[in-house]
Computed example of a mutant assay.
Amino acid sequence: MTSPPPPRSRSSDAQSGSATLVALRGIDKTFANGTLALSGLDLDIRENEFVSLLGPSGCGKSTALRILAGLIPASRGDVAWTGGGSAEDHRGEIGFVFQEPTLMPWATVADNVFLPLRLRGVSRRDAADAIASSLDLVGLSRFAHAYPRELSGGMKMRVSIARALSLRPRILLMDEPFAALDEITRFKLNDDLLRLQREFGCTVVFVTHSVYESVYLSTRIVVMAARPGRIVAEIPVAAPTPRSEAFRTTPLYGTLCREASAALHEAMGPADDTDPAHADH
Rank of each mutant, 00 (worst) to 15 (best):
D42N: 15
R66A: 07
W81C: 00
T20N: 06
N33G: 05
I27M: 03
S75N: 05
S11H: 12
Q15K: 10
K29L: 14
L21E: 09
V22W: 00
N33M: 02
E88H: 13
T35R: 10
S18M: 04
A37I: 12
S18R: 13
I45V: 11
F31E: 02
E47N: 11
A87C: 01
S62A: 12
A64D: 10
L36A: 03
Q15M: 05
K61H: 13
S52E: 00
S18K: 08
K29I: 11
N48Q: 14
L53Q: 03
V22Y: 00
F31P: 04
R66E: 10
E49G: 14
A19V: 06
G77S: 11
T63D: 08
R46V: 08
A19N: 09
F31V: 11
S12C: 09
L43C: 13
R46N: 10
V79K: 00
S16D: 10
Q15R: 13
D13R: 09
L41K: 08
L71A: 10
A87Y: 01
E93S: 15
N33D: 15
I45W: 00
G60T: 07
D28P: 13
P73I: 13
G58Q: 13
N48Y: 07
T82H: 10
A80W: 01
W81E: 00
L24Q: 07
L38P: 06
S12H: 12
W81H: 00
F50Q: 03
D89Y: 01
Q15C: 03
S16N: 05
S52M: 01
K61Y: 10
I72T: 13
P73A: 09
I27Y: 03
G70H: 02
D13V: 04
S11F: 15
S75P: 04
A32T: 14
L53V: 02
E49L: 05
Q15T: 14
R76H: 09
R46W: 09
P56S: 05
S57H: 12
A19P: 02
A69V: 11
G60R: 07
L21D: 03
K29T: 13
D42Q: 12
A80E: 12
R76F: 01
K29N: 12
D44E: 15
S57V: 11
G58F: 15
T30M: 07
S62C: 11
S11C: 10
H90D: 00
A32H: 08
Q15F: 04
T30F: 04
L43M: 15
P56N: 01
F31R: 07
A19E: 14
D28G: 11
L53H: 03
D13N: 06
I72H: 02
F50H: 08
G60M: 13
W81M: 00
L53I: 03
L65G: 06
E49I: 07
L21W: 04
S57G: 12
A19H: 06
S75W: 04
R66H: 14
E47M: 03
N48S: 14
L41D: 10
V51H: 02
S57A: 14
S39D: 08
R25K: 15
A37M: 11
D42R: 05
A80S: 05
T30L: 06
C59P: 07
T82Y: 05
E93M: 08
T20P: 09
G83I: 11
A87K: 00
H90Y: 04
L43K: 13
R25L: 09
G58W: 13
E93Y: 09
L54M: 02
N48D: 12
H90A: 01
L54S: 01
I27C: 06
V51W: 02
S57N: 07
G58P: 14
L41G: 12
N48H: 13
R10P: 07
